[in-house]
Amino acid sequence: MAALLIDHGVGSELPAQLGLGSGEAAARSTLRAQVAQLDRLLSAAACEAFPDRLDLPVLPARGPRLQSLGELELLRDALIGSLRQAREALATRELERTAARELLEQMLLDPAKYRRLRIAQSELGVGGCGVWSVMPRLGPMGRLMGWWRVKLSSGCPLAA
């Protein structure tokens, strides 16, 4: 069936009649730019956090509508708070990962000292479902003899 295009319009850009003092217009423009920049930084933080999810506060929403200067300021401040929270969460996660990596190094050096300890790949910030665990070599015999080793499980279960 042939396309029949009978009209094509490009909306003219909306008329600029803000009717505000240049000071307020400049303030609004600055706040909008800050909001856009903060959203880009939050997006980058969300991507960095993946596959974890950042639990950020829900911002009050009353849109879509033109925001007042006060609302834009509140939004900007809320986004700064969210960004600070996101960065703290990422920093905490990195500290936990560093600690887990150091613990794994210790486990590999002296398995007998860390018997039955398990560290998941996700705790190390590595993809996949593998788990590093300290297990006795040759089962009960190894446990009695003190033959401990670190083993990495084979990974994610196959899809059913």
């Binding site: 069936m1 009209d7 094509h8 909306g11 850009e13 033109l66």
Partner: peptide, 24 residues
Amino acid sequence: MSGGLGAEFPGLRADWLCCQCRNH
């Protein structure tokens, strides 16, 4: 207030196109 939209968001607009659909 609608007049202020253009100053607030330069480039905000609706574009449109007509077409036919005889078979759904």
